[in-house]
Design a protein around this nucleic acid. Sequence first.
DNA 1: AATAATCGCAACCGCGCTCAA
DNA 2: TTTGAGCGCGGTTGCGATTAT
Length: 324
Amino acid sequence: MGRSPCCEEKIHMKKGPWTPEEDKKLVDYIQQHGHRSWRSLPKNAGLNRCGKSCRLRWTNYLRPDIKRGNFSEDEERQIIHLHSLIGNKWSKISTHLPGRTDNEIKNYWNTHLKKKLLRMGIDPVTHTRRTDLDALSSFSTLLTASASLSNLVNPLDNALRLHADAAQYLATLQILANLTKLTNISNPPPSINHLQQLNDLLHVNGGSLGVLGSHLGNYSNVPNIINPSEILMAKFNHASSASEINSGMSSPAFTTSNDMQICIDSTAPPLLSASTPENCEGRECMQEQMDNPIDANASTPFQDWQALNLGEIDEDFSWKDILE
DNA sequence: AATAATCGCAACCGCGCTCAA
DNA sequence: TTTGAGCGCGGTTGCGATTAT
């Protein structure tokens, strides 16, 4: 049903920002008489405003229990959590955040949290990893950045060079890996042949991942393309022991057995997921996660990358810096 | 220093729900 | 059962403040 204008005399009503005098009149009236009927309130309070405007001013600004100031991290988390469960139900969300109005939460969501999630590669509507090509292009920005880093490092500094090479390679890897996902290309496990070629490449080129990365095209052009990240991980899986890695036969970027374990256990982190698990989709999935406090803290895409824990060369150089 | 672009927030708009007559 | 007043909600707009060029 509904109604359009909230009062017939609306055209004569004042609009726009409230003056301190109007605020005082409204507060004084409500403190004395309450606000049983918003429609009759402005007339009784001596305000040339429509009741709706009075209600909004009171509920969003003048109410004595309104909390002012920045949102705390805890409040942010709660908003994101609740939004993932119930969507844009701002008034419902506000009931869980004492002193915060639905309007304030809505504004905060639109101006801060939405962007924050997007920066993290999370779709603010579905709360799942983004699958669009924008995110892919942002990753190619990372590739460009890592390439620049590669150009900046002293060619004589072998360790730094390898780190930069690895950064560039990982970026390439992720782009290709996600392209294969986006295009629904099947990923059969790497054959022994592929592994042998990979092994040769690493040995011939002194274990430089940068050089290896430059050969990825050979794999991505063949039919039945193999997910490049799987090639790399299979290579490490295939290595006879961690000592082989540590002895310099493989990339110095992966030097500890702990690092190896991470590489073996997972492919490149799923910054972009082209598909969701059959039994866990979109908001329902998030609902499950939020019901479980541990799952609710599930890693963000960025955390996935941090989880690679590839180590740091020195205080001024870290993977976090590259990935940021 | 001037101008344009962007951001952040308060306020408005209009739809739909509830409930009393 | 129908009607419509009143209210609440979510989306949108307007504008001052801030930042970038």
